[in-house]
């Protein structure tokens, strides 16, 4: 698991100049300071994680259960309500306390991160789009089967279609993680994080950024 994690919002892609004056394609992520709402550890919850919120939300528009979660009447905590509650799984939550802010400068330039988000929904997609099938010929007498999957199995034996056969169906809108993206810039004043490469999901989507769990062939 990760030692560091933070939540952000995808702004979009652009490009910046690298040290060698070459173009570096980057995704801009807005990482507002995340406020810790709840600290989960092995004793109380069976696993360690931080429940955080970010951004602002009108306190009057909260439901009672939400308001009670951010600031219970018992006075156990009083955290300003944010746009969403996000849980960040961590190896260890030692040193984190309720109300503490996690900022973008927890990540350093050059560090490798994994970015998790919900990918864009593509709806019901055929096998060419969903599983990169080749489709069928445009000509040679083909009639209305240009994008069909083709054969899906044998005849009397086995007499059924194998489970797990790749077929048309719903594509996208699932959690996707992009591994080992390089941090190009982390700006705590503007609350911006620039990572090299693309990030799943639409602009405006919520992304979770944590330090890379797998090693990279490029070192670090």
């Amino acid at each position: 698991m990760a030692q560091k994690a933070i939540v952000g919002e995808k702004v979009g892609m652009t490009q910046v100049w690298g040290d060698d004056q070459r173009v570096v394609p980057v995704t801009v992520l807005r990482v507002e300071p995340a406020r810790i709402v709840q600290v989960k550890n092995g004793l109380t919850d069976g696993y360690s994680a931080l429940q955080v919120t970010f951004g602002q939300r009108d306190a009057k528009k909260l439901s009672r259960s939400e308001a009670g979660h951010f600031a219970p009447k018992s006075g156990a905590r009083n955290v300003a309500a944010g746009r969403r509650l996000v849980e960040l799984r961590l190896d260890s939550v030692d040193g984190f306390e309720i109300g503490q802010e996690i900022k973008v400068d927890t990540l350093a330039v050059g560090e490798r991160v994994d970015v998790t988000a919900v990918s864009r929904g593509k709806g019901f997609a055929g096998t060419m789009k969903r599983h990169n099938f080749s489709g069928q010929g445009a000509s040679h007498g083909n009639h209305k089967h240009h994008r069909s999957p083709g054969s899906i199995g044998s005849c009397t034996f086995p007499g059924r279609v194998f489970k797990g056969l790749r077929m048309p169906g719903h594509l996208g809108h699932q959690q996707v993680t992009t591994l080992n993206l390089e941090v190009v810039q982390a700006d705590p004043e503007k609350n911006l994080l620039l990572v090299k490469g693309s990030v799943p999901g639409p602009n405006g989507g919520v992304v979770i950024i944590r330090n890379a769990v797998k090693g990279s062939s490029k070192g670090k």
Binding site: G12, V28, L194
Partner: peptide, 12 residues
Amino acid sequence: MKPTDIVEKQIL
């Protein structure tokens, strides 16, 4: 204005 302009305008 695009949202990414906050980054782009620095390198123009």
